[in-house]
Amino acid sequence: MQLTLDEISILCVYSAMVVYAIAFIAFSIDLARRSAAATAAADAAARVEVKETVAVGAPSSPRSAGAAKPAASVAYGRSPSLRVGVAMTVLAWILHLSADVLRGLAAGRVPWANMYEFALTGTLIITTVFLVVLVVVKQDLRFLGTFITGLVLVLLGIAALNFYVSPIPLPPALQSVWLVIHVFVASASVGLFALGFALSVVQLMQARRESIAATAKAVKLTFLATLPDSVTLENLAYRINIIGFIMWTFTLMAGSIWAEKAWGRYWGWDTKEVWTFIIWVVYAGYIHARATRGWRGSRSAWLAIIGFSTVLFNFTVVNLFFKGLHAYSGL
């Protein structure tokens, strides 16, 4: 039997999903182990104040060097399930990348011209950003593995089952270099926003835990105890989100330039334009909140979460159910 490029691509998608699922399980086991480790550490160092957060024993975190830290955190960096999780994510990423490239070859163009392809490429970028931060920037965000692999798995599954269309040529309106630039940068910013979102969620959980600890009540020891403190998480989230924001600003502008060429006006409050604008304004609000007294911390984290919700809404609901010129879902 002769498989077409697209069929091989689909095979890669499904294989990638299986491997993502394994990675997801491994990362989840790791989270469970973190809770256990945290409890053990608390027992071992009963006199250590509960308030103090226990750093992850990652190479990049100098805090683990402290002698006063419970042994559990040092042992933590060698967590086998964490390593399995990362290794499986890398493997899934390779399969995912192959799927995407093959899809592009099958269609004879960039693989991001309809819903299925946006999802395929967008999720690939989410994983890529995650791995780049992990491996190249050497920032230990492995604790987000459950979220990232889970999100990618769900989105990829929805795309493969519900959005699939066979590769077809581009309609005239999409035949433009701006398809390559605008849509790619948009997907990349979505990848960054996803990561920023995850960090903000963990930040809120961590902040809650810290505030309970500050009132000297007994804190339930969960995996949070092994993660960076909420301020560190907030700064990380901010740095990722502003890169996403700059790319989104570019997306918006590139989209306007393209709209001018394709539709004869650079801005017309088409539904997709409206939502691109809304996302941009929400993240501008987030950046302001970070610089406003009384809004730093949890409040600004909520804005980042709302921001990413609008991103997801824009990608799913707006694409599928709203009427407008951007009717390129292919469904």
Binding site: I278, V281, V282, A284, G285, H288, A289, T292, W295, L303, T310
Partner: peptide, 8 residues
């Protein structure tokens, strides 16, 4: 900030 959120 509030006006930005209101605008959104």
């Amino acid at each position: 900030l509030l006006l930005l959120l209101l605008l959104a």
